[in-house]
Design a binder for these strands. Structure first.
Lengths: 140, 140
DNA sequence: CCCACATGGTGCGATCTCGCAGTACATCTG
DNA sequence: CAGATGTACTGCGAGATCGCACCATGTGGG
């Protein structure tokens, strides 16, 4: 068994679980995660967001357009760079995120319970994995 | 920090890393993983494959069509159920998988090295996560 | 100060993903 | 051994992802 392959399997299962659980909120698992990133920072540029998501710029561009059309996000001018802009979750966007969060919470709890004493390990391992993979991605 | 969210972040990074690394082989990260599942079992039905991938039947159907068009996969009648069929990797498909595997190997090694002593933990945690998530998905 | 080159974003189009609805076969019930 | 109900798969179409080519702006060298 290989760690990267397992990451992939776990991710598929997780994605499916979240998509089902969050469906009533109107957000997909991916979208919930993205909204979570957005709500963690008051404001963020597309490039920064792309780095967090490890997604291509074009995809992020589509996200912003979609979320903006929903009224969940606004663009503000970026004082530091006129080519760019800053993305901000609107109150409506925050509400959507909270609503999805309410559906997400029970899963979070359930997973923590089932992990039992290994919950701590799991967090540490995952953080380390992200560091390792990003390190390799960054070029060495 | 939440385990499920971290799973998602790690998966995005991993996917990006694999897509870049495997590009010369003509397979994406997803496809490499699927070919890996296919090569682990001599033969598999679409429904079984869908369970492994935690993917909807329709998506698996598209996969099979695509891989078949590449000559990487064949369909054989399923003696147990005439609605179904069995998917088998062709020699050409195996070759493609091996070629991608050659590009994958260095990453595997690199990740293992960087994880160091935690490599064992990582595997265990990931396996446990898959069990936990699948358990919840299965309904309780 | 200008120019060459690097970087931030987007329109467009090819390709994927996946829900819905439909068909074919299997299985269960009486 | 029907008839009803469930399960395996697929055509189709809507929406999502993302590479390529492109424009606008920033930056570093001479």
């Amino acid at each position: 068994m290989d760690a990267l392959f397992l990451v992939w399997l776990v991710a598929r299962s997780t994605e499916d679980l979240l998509d089902s659980a969050l469906a009533p909120s109107g957000l997909t698992g991916d979208e919930y995660a993205i909204y979570s990133v957005l709500s963690a920072a008051p404001t963020i540029t597309p490039t920064e967001l792309a780095r967090w998501l490890a997604a291509p710029a074009t995809t992020v561009s589509s996200y912003v357009k979609r979320f903006e059309a929903r009224g969940h996000v606004t663009r503000e001018p970026n004082p530091d760079d006129r080519r760019s802009y800053r993305i901000r979750l609107t109150p409506k966007g925050r509400r959507a995120h909270r609503a999805a969060g309410a559906l997400f919470a029970p899963l979070r709890t359930e997973v923590a319970e089932r992990l039992g004493s290994r919950a701590e390990d799991a967090l540490e391992v995952l953080l380390r994995l992200r560091t390792v993979v990003d390190g390799i991605r960054a070029g060495a």
